[in-house]
Computed example of a mutant assay.
Amino acid sequence: MEKRLRGLKKAMENTYMQELEFTSMMKKRIHDSIAKEAISEQDVLTSLLELLAKERTGFELTGLLQARGIRKYEDDEGSLYSLLHEQEHRGIIASSWGSSGEKYYRLTDKGRRVLEKTSKRASRARFSFKEQSEG
């Protein structure tokens, strides 16, 4: 380790930083918070549109997004419904009420076109990143 880094580490050990301890629960919260922020809004929207290729309820969507590693709505399902309402207002998705009172969401034709464009853009971005990382 470089001399200046060793000095920094020693200085941190001799200050109040030494007294900080994180419980496993605090570590999990920090990790979850970072994970929630790591996924872009575009990635969330793309995943949502992919899942809506089949008609689903908001509850189903929450679970399926979590299964994809998108934990953004885990403790705040209300924001998912706000996003769904916004996309419905834009004509990208449509909704209908089921016989048991649940609301179902599905892609519209416009939504399918948006998904196709978004998927192509994401594919190009991944290809570009792969080229840069290999080069």
Rank of each mutant, 00 (worst) to 15 (best):
E37H: 08
E37C: 03
A38M: 11
A38P: 01
A38N: 11
A38V: 04
I39A: 03
S40I: 04
S40K: 10
S40C: 02
S40F: 02
E41C: 01
E41H: 10
E41D: 09
Q42G: 08
Q42P: 00
D43I: 09
D43S: 14
D43H: 11
V44Q: 09
V44F: 04
L45V: 10
L45N: 06
T46W: 11
T46V: 12
T46M: 14
S47T: 03
L48W: 01
L48H: 04
L49Y: 04
E50M: 11
E50I: 06
E50D: 06
E50A: 07
E50F: 06
E50L: 10
L51V: 04
L51I: 07
L51P: 04
L52V: 02
L52P: 02
A53D: 09
A53M: 12
A53N: 10
K54D: 14
E55F: 07
R56L: 08
G58H: 02
G58A: 09
F59G: 07
F59R: 14
F59K: 14
L61P: 08
T62A: 08
T62F: 02
T62I: 13
G63N: 10
L64H: 07
L64Y: 10
L64R: 13
L65M: 13
L65R: 12
Q66Y: 03
A67C: 00
A67G: 05
A67P: 00
A67Y: 05
A67M: 07
R68A: 03
R68S: 03
R68W: 01
G69E: 11
I70R: 06
I70W: 02
R71D: 11
K72Q: 08
K72A: 02
K72T: 07
K72C: 00
Y73H: 10
Y73D: 05
D75M: 12
D75Y: 15
D76T: 06
D76V: 01
D76Y: 04
E77G: 02
E77Q: 11
G78N: 15
S79L: 08
S79G: 03
S79D: 09
L80Y: 00
L80T: 00
L80H: 01
S82Y: 09
L83H: 04
L83E: 05
H85W: 12
H85T: 13
H85M: 13
E86R: 15
E86W: 08
E86S: 13
E86L: 12
E86P: 01
E86D: 14
Q87K: 13
Q87E: 12
Q87H: 08
Q87V: 03
Q87L: 15
E88I: 00
E88D: 06
H89G: 12
H89T: 11
H89V: 10
H89R: 15
R90W: 07
G91L: 04
G91S: 02
I92W: 10
I92P: 01
I92K: 07
I93A: 04
I93V: 14
I93C: 06
A94F: 10
A94D: 11
S95K: 12
S95V: 02
S96G: 09
W97I: 07
W97K: 13
G98M: 08
G98A: 13
S99W: 08
S99A: 10
S100H: 14
K103N: 03
Y104N: 12
Y104L: 14
Y104H: 15
Y105P: 01
R106Q: 15
R106E: 13
R106L: 12
L107C: 09
T108E: 04
D109T: 15
D109A: 15
D109Q: 14
